[in-house]
């Protein structure tokens, strides 16, 4: 049996299934008892509201792993993640290293990302993955569909490493067909969401959907795009990218976060190191130009890559 469910339901299903499967899994976060009443009812003290204390919330999560639990910490907006950076960067990601592999830090930190076109403003609209990408020991997941979100979150909860799980707010409008039976999606494996011949477009989360829309339009103009959904930024599935570039000889990365030092730059570097000879055109990055996300919707949309931006850049290299 296949059902259509939305992004939020997919997330809740993943949490519910993993909490049933493993009594060590619990979740803390601001207002979560209000936002997840059914989980609260079924799991009681394993769903715990917190005061506004983001730093300690992640620190508490790390400490709970040291005493045998597997926490999920919900951080409402990813603009709050900088408050948690100390525990992510100085503790969580180093636990396994500090203990020489004897002890690990199986924690998931969930946070919403992205601009919505509804004027959420500078501090509720950021895409902060670049802040945390330079901290080996963390895994970073950014799903694009409810199906992927469910399978990836289940994997993240079972993973013995700290995982930052970034959920784009606009994905709450998406639906996926999801099987009744259990499934998981391994971390670190990209998914080719559209097969094509002329150019490889690498994207994630909401930018994946814009890239697919661009690919649709370009198809009508005779340009065949291969669209890769990375799904996991750390560890990065280099192989899928390189194999695709060997086929298409052209690469475009699309990200909502600022261009400089973003993941697009890393992918371009990897391709330069490992597949430069296959490239027939410069690698291009479609990204935020290097600004905060303004509140006014008109300005907000001016700094978020659009479908038209992706089409324009694709035509430059094909």
């Amino acid at each position: 049996m296949v059902r259509k469910i939305g992004f939020r339901s997919a997330i809740i299903e993943a949490i519910r299934e993993e909490m049933l499967r493993d009594t060590r899994v619990f979740m803390i976060g601001e207002d979560i008892e209000y936002f997840y009443p059914a989980l609260k009812e079924d799991f009681s003290e394993r769903i715990l509201n917190t005061p506004i204390s983001e730093s300690a919330m992640v620190g508490v999560g790390v400490g709970a792993t040291l005493n045998g639990m597997r926490p999920i910490v919900e951080i409402m907006f990813s603009s709050l993640l900088p408050l948690c950076m100390d525990h992510l960067v100085n503790s969580a990601r180093m636990i396994c290293y500090q203990y020489g592999g004897e002890v690990t830090c199986p924690m998931v930190v969930r946070a919403s990302i992205g601009a919505t076109g509804r004027g959420l403003g500078l501090h509720h609209s950021q895409s902060p993955e670049s802040f945390i990408l330079n901290a080996p020991g963390l895994k970073i997941v950014m799903p694009s569909t409810p199906y992927d979100a469910k399978g990836l979150l289940k994997s993240a909860i079972r993973d013995n490493n700290p995982v930052v799980f970034l959920e784009h707010k606009l994905l709450r409008e998406k639906e996926s067909s999801i099987p009744e039976e259990e499934f998981i999606i391994p971390l670190g494996k990209a998914d080719v969401k559209r097969v094509g011949e002329d150019v490889t477009i690498v994207a994630m989360a909401q930018m994946l959907h814009k890239s697919l829309e661009a690919a649709n339009k370009l198809h009508k103009e005779g340009i065949s795009c291969e669209v890769i959904d990375l799904r996991t930024l750390l560890p990065l599935d280099e192989n899928t990218i390189i194999e695709s570039v060997k086929k298409t000889s052209r690469l475009i990365t699309v990200q909502e976060s600022p261009k400089a030092y973003g993941f697009g730059a890393e992918i371009a570097a990897i391709v330069a190191e490992k597949a430069l000879g296959y490239l027939d055109a410069p690698v291009m990055r479609v990204a935020n130009p290097g600004t905060p996300i303004p509140c006014t919707v008109l300005l907000e949309q001016a700094v978020i890559p659009s479908v038209e931006d992706i089409i324009r850049v694709t035509k430059e290299v094909v």
Binding site: F26, E45, R46, S55, A56, V58, G59, V60, G61, V62, G63, A64, T65, L66, N67, G68, M69, P71, D86, H87, N90, S91
Partner: peptide
Amino acid sequence: SDIAKATGAALAAKLR
């Protein structure tokens, strides 16, 4: 920072 971690270990003790 370890004050938060110790607190988390205590939360785990309670939940367990």
